[in-house]
Design a protein around this nucleic acid. Structure first.
Lengths: 222, 222, 222, 222
DNA sequence: GATGAATGAGTTTTCATTCAT
DNA sequence: AATGAATGAAAACTCATTCAT
């Protein structure tokens, strides 16, 4: 499951140079979206990618198509990370959670806007990825619960929300410091995941409830 | 310390209608910034506020002035909340932390973009507020540490960063659900604040280090 | 019934300079549409009118709005001409027809695109004008028929179609010569209107039938 | 004199598929020009023709070449019609005129833009065709005059102008109705051609005068 | 103090045209 | 011979900002 699938598996083969351009556009978009929001001039993305604006348009008919692809690529990476973590869940579930969330922080640059916290999308392939992510995380949680190393009231949605919170950029802060702060925050959060918790959580929305409300809405800069 | 100070305390008296317009502009800006980032057309803010764009310009000479004021208003509210919490710190420091952070969540709409997570500003009054906030939070932490109800490695910067993380909007989620998720996340985090922690945190940046890098950078849509 | 009504009677008062600009834009559009079709760059219209392109957009949100207004203005003039002609119909119906059609030729420049032959519009005010034009022409025809100076099988629709045919520009021909050719053609046509005709006409569509099919379709260059 | 000559008779042999593409491009251009003017995107013509845009360019180096060919094809058809009509002029000159003009209406779709009313062209072959058309029409007129069945003041130019007027599309009208209206108009006009006319025509421009002014002017949407 | 209006400077989007495959 | 791809240049449209009323 590479992070460069177009919007889903059915990739039409591109000519070599076109494929290269496409990848450069996506990389430029990822960076630009992070730095300046999804409302950045497409001009700038094209310039960063070293291609003409019309080339960008040929590949992505509008801004949304570009955003969607960036999100989908991000989701792919999240899924990869979640599955890798799930693979170790039987050994040490808490370490698996940590591995997943720290992976989110480590890959901030690539994730760009994904998860709940970013411009969401109705793209069916993106939705499928979201569900698969939830499945992998639930596997980890189940292992943690049955081994009694994880508080029972935490759900996959909480992990996704946490990932969304900590991997979003803290603008106006140098990236290294933002990363340190996120990691420190995560450290505390992970300690809070231990089973002997002292406070109850408000009842959670289901994953279904949450995604039910998701609709694509053009350009958005949070 | 009301939330409607222009940029600092010395507010020039405005005619009644002008004051009303100013307040409406700020409210509209707050909402628009949250929904669409600080790059939203000023036109739209004026329209939402029910005033002419030129009226907005009369009150705020440029976008930055408007952003600054929204930030300052937010900081004022944060400071109020932090001081109120600090007032109870001697009794129950952990509850004081909770009260502060839950207050952040409750006031999300008003905070708009403040703190680390928002468009920062060099406005001297804003900087002063930030420092005062840090002072109040350190008061709480000191109480917690000396009473040994709070892990020692947590600093004021961590609380500020946490506030920034949890009070930013999760776009494309209905606000109520975003609030619930933030509150659940906070619940876990608070449990992680107990002194018997199991993992060390990466070493923190100082408040000075962080703010050293802050510079105003025109318009930004995180 | 002046030719400068916005799109119908409910004209919001414009500031003096704004009204002047609006009139200049319409005049420029009229000329440009005639010369280069309704697909001419709006830039050029703005330039000819001596205003900024954004001023054009403030007044006419899109190309269609501009086209519609030009058409409506043209229809107003046609209606004026038809009514003036109808005023003399009782005296000399054939002269009234001639007066109407020659008026169309004389006012070519102002008519721009109107009638059947131009970019049609669904604008309700435009439709009403069309109907009123038909009424005035029928008045002339009725007088001609009862005085037996006009062949009976000619209808208002025929006069409108004739007007459309002869007042459209013959591009690539100097305007004076086009006018002469149109006038000569009209001369023959008028002779053909006499009652002692030698051939039958194919059965006519009703005005209702014709306008039933009219729908606005964005930009069109005939 | 087929309608598919490139610009003159000396047609280079094309490979079968290339010839098919060329014909499809011309058909698509004819239709598109009629519907949207000669300024339509060449992209669209290529798409309608089911070929790649680069293929269109291989066949026609620029828009003018395409227009010229469409015009030439149209002129060829006009000339065919005029000669066929001239063949019957000795028998019934008025019927010959009718046959010519009705033929114009019947072939509207194929004529596309020819004659005076369309984008003119300096193509020498096109000019020759125009002259030949005039010759054929004058033959008809001479017959009519000498038989005294046709008013004397009507010239070949008038017939050409009439053809131009009635065979241009009346946009925004369903083609069938436009055809009916044109035929009805023609019916009246033909009656006006009888020798016992009641009014004089303004003095005519000569064919030479008219064509003296013709120059190709790139793209034009009448 | 407030607003309608205008404008210059973008940003988005489309199109004609060329090139490499 | 035909096509996918790329591009420069233009056209459509938007927005921040200023001015005159």
């Amino acid at each position: 499951m590479t992070a460069s699938t177009p919007s889903g598996p059915p990739t039409p083969r591109l000519r070599a140079d076109a494929a290269r351009n496409r990848a450069q556009i996506l990389a430029a978009a990822r960076a630009a979206f992070r730095e300046s929001g999804t409302a950045v001039p497409l001009d700038e993305i094209a310039r960063r990618a070293g291609v003409n604006i019309a080339t960008l348009y040929r590949r992505f008919p509008d801004r949304d198509a570009l955003i969607t692809q960036v999100v989908v690529d991000g989701f792919s990476l999240v899924l990869d990370t979640a599955r890798a973590a799930a693979g170790t869940a039987q050994t040490d579930p808490l370490a698996a959670v940590e591995s997943f969330l720290q992976g989110m922080i480590d890959n901030r640059e690539l994730l760009s806007l994904p998860l709940i916290g970013g411009p969401m999308t109705n793209d069916p392939y993106a939705r499928r990825l979201q569900q698969q992510i939830a499945v992998a995380l639930e596997e980890i949680l189940t292992a943690g619960h049955s081994r009694k190393v994880l508080r029972r009231d935490v759900t996959a949605v909480d992990l996704i929300a946490t990932a969304a919170l900590i991997c979003r950029p803290l603008p106006h802060l140098p990236p290294e410091q933002a990363t340190v702060l996120a990691a420190r925050h995560l450290g505390v959060f992970l300690d809070g995941l231990r089973p002997e918790h002292t406070r109850d959580l408000p009842s959670p929305p289901t994953h279904a409830e949450m995604t039910a409300h998701l609709v694509t809405e053009g350009t958005t800069a949070p």
